[in-house]
Amino acid sequence: MTHAEIEQHDLVDRYLLRKLPAEVEVAFTEHYLGCRTCVQKLEAGRKLLEVLENAEPPPKPAANEKGWVRGWWLPQPAWGVAAALAALALYVNLSRPAAPGLVPSSGEQVPRSGAPAPVLELRTYRAADEPGPALGAAEAAGGFWLQMDLRALDAYSSYAVEVVAETGPTAWSGRGAPGEQRDQLRVRVDGSRLEPGPYWVRLSGLTADGSPRLLREYALEVRP
């Protein structure tokens, strides 16, 4: 792996955000273990990420993501600043889902996303007759969290999650690592491509060579 490839594919940031495919993450880790340049970039990136985590904004207004991004930084009246700071203080104590598997070095679960996205706890296995949890397509489009219980499963340092339409195509895929408590996996799903209908959520553990081992399949439904 060369530094040109690392730059070209944005591997440093994607690694820190846990967005690398398993095999690329392995190759990149093998590279940076012995590369001071990359370790320095990763450390700098990690610090920048922590700085940006400190920029946690208040919840965005529904269905206006761009407006939220721009609006939050606009000048506020004095009472607005006070209210915003009070809201930020509340955020510190709120139990919110962390980014996929993110365990900040401080050991605290720091919320990473400004959107109060719904959390769907997956319990219903594919073989069961019961329907899985459901959410509306509009709600899914805004992003949501999937939460899975890992306690009865083989432990892996990272997991792959796929949301697969009943007809076969993969609608979303992502990766995550267990959170602080190690017994749960939470991944944030970009559901903008999920059409209404039934889905399977495939949870796989990723082995050292990056190959997935299917652990469980859950049911999920997206309503119109």
Binding site: D13, L52, S113
Partner: peptide, 21 residues
């Protein structure tokens, strides 16, 4: 962050805070 150009700020917030692809 408020001192950044809006276009730059939007990229940073979307990528690092909202974790958009």
């Amino acid at each position: 962050l408020g001192k950044l150009e809006p276009a730059e700020r939007e990229v940073l917030v979307r990528f690092y805070v909202q974790e958009q692809d």
